[in-house]
Design a binder for these strands. Sequence first.
DNA 1: GGGGCGATGTGCT
DNA 2: GCACATCGCCCCA
Length: 214
Amino acid sequence: MERDAQDERVMAREELAIDPVDLARKLLGGVLESRTPEGIVRLRLAEVEAYRGLDDPASHCYRGRTPRNDVMWGPAGHLYVYFVYGMHFCANVVGLSDGQPGAVLLRAGEVVEGADLARKRRPTARGNGHVAKGPAVLTSVLGLDRAHNGIDLTDSSASVRLLAGESVADERIRSGPRVGVAAAIDIPWRFWIDGSPAVSTYRRGGRVRPRAER
DNA sequence: GGGGCGATGTGCT
DNA sequence: GCACATCGCCCCA
């Protein structure tokens, strides 16, 4: 079937080498696949956020190139994985092209294959292995960690790949402020598929100041 | 060399 | 709704 062929198609680098805000919309409905000795898990992306390098104070690239964020400087289509809060990993797809940093954080998705393995990897997560609600749940369900940083998702032989999946109609895409981000809170660079059970609940970022605020 | 805090998840109140 | 676990990164001294 035509749709199945599209589901299986590995996305090409030139499709991904675009502004992260546009890439975020394009990734919705796409499928991230991880293959390990344990098995295969596939996840249809339902919620993402754009982080656009140098002029975005919330981006890891904002203060320049460092060993940690090196992958974000391109090339596009690679996986940027980072460690946060001393216990979680988050995964991004790098956008734009060489020399221009930017990426899309993968926040949530629906497990379309390998629910048993997903549940085994994250037994306490709500959704019983069928949804990955939140960026750290998403990475653990797929078995991603620091070792997967820099993988080329457009390489058809890679252990982690990005498949085209289904395109999502514009009217089904919603947007709003990014979760857990205090800087640039007015910029609606979070995108999600309306009605998806995987979409995480909004939480504003930044610690509440002791009493300075208002 | 030291300290503050973060693109979070979970369980308990 | 809130506190807390837990540690690497980055800024500043």
